[in-house]
Design a protein around this nucleic acid. Structure first.
Length: 262
DNA sequence: ATGGTAGTGATACTA
């Protein structure tokens, strides 16, 4: 049995609804983690997406952020919000157990803070959020179950994940501290799916709307799937659906889809 | 060095 788990920062689920429906109909992921839905829960276009056979859980926010999990299988054990700071009101984390046919799989949809400008309070928030994520992931790993942390990590892990690192080296997405915090996550025992199956050259998941980045091929790879050993052992493939970026009214991010024999 | 674009929501702000 194959379970496909996708991540896509849609940059407003309402503005992107036709693109989202088209992609779901074509790619048919079993699970889709969405980020930047930019709406409160009540504003989420439930019916249109339910009509495609998805159960839906959202952790929304007015105007900014907001994450969701769509699943063709039942959704259980929902968690909204990242533990570790009760005062954090930004909707950037939702987690659930998917009752897949081959057994339960825990999945999270993550919208990690951008952190620019760095240095500054926004960058401090990013690093603190990454440390909270590390601690929470450490707890989740003790369950020794298939776990996939999918999302927009706002981290360029390596120079080769960018068309020209000189343009990014002082940016919050590529600073040494950002990469160190991302590595600290992986050192817990998480496998980054694309990196694991790499060897196909550059593939990016984000092209800025500005400065004709898409037309010039100036992209970066910042959307990732981090997998527990029990998930990574069953990783069969990873795809970046670059075509979606060329469509009318495209999101600036591109879906990434992992296939697991689960 | 600057500004280029898109989304929200009605003006700056986030990215």
């Amino acid at each position: 049995m194959t379970l496909t788990v996708a991540s896509w920062n849609v940059n407003s689920v309402k503005a992107r609804l036709p693109n989202v429906l088209d992609w779901l109909s074509e790619a048919k992921p079993d699970v889709a983690c969405l980020q930047e839905i930019k709406t409160v829960d009540e504003g989420f276009p439930r019916m249109e997406i339910e009509d495609l056979g998805y159960n839906i859980e959202t952790h929304g926010q007015k105007s900014y952020n907001g994450v969701a999990i769509l699943s063709k299988h039942p959704i259980e054990e929902l968690r909204c919000g990242l533990p570790g700071d009760e005062s954090d009101e930004q909707a950037r984390y939702i987690e659930a157990v998917i009752a897949a046919e081959g057994g339960p799989v825990r999945v999270a949809s993550i919208y990690l803070p951008n952190g620019n400008p760095a240095p500054g309070p926004k960058y401090d928030y990013k690093l603190a959020w990454m440390e909270r994520l590390r601690r929470h992931a450490q707890n989740l790993l003790t369950f020794e179950e298939p776990l996939i942390l999918a999302g927009d990590y706002n981290c360029i892990p390596r120079d080769s994940d960018c068309w020209d690192i000189a343009e990014w080296e002082s940016d919050a997405l590529a600073l040494p501290q950002t990469r160190a915090a991302f590595r600290a996550l992986k050192w817990l025992g998480l496998t980054e799916a694309f990196e694991q199956l790499d060897g196909r050259g550059h593939q990016y998941t984000f092209y800025d709307y500005q400065a004709g980045r898409w037309n010039k091929g100036h992209g970066i790879r910042i959307d990732h799937l981090l997998c527990s050993p029990q998930a990574a052992d069953h990783l069969e493939g990873i795809e970046i659906h670059t075509k979606t970026r060329g469509k009318e009214k495209a999101s600036d991010h591109i879906p990434i889809v992992g296939s697991f024999s689960l």
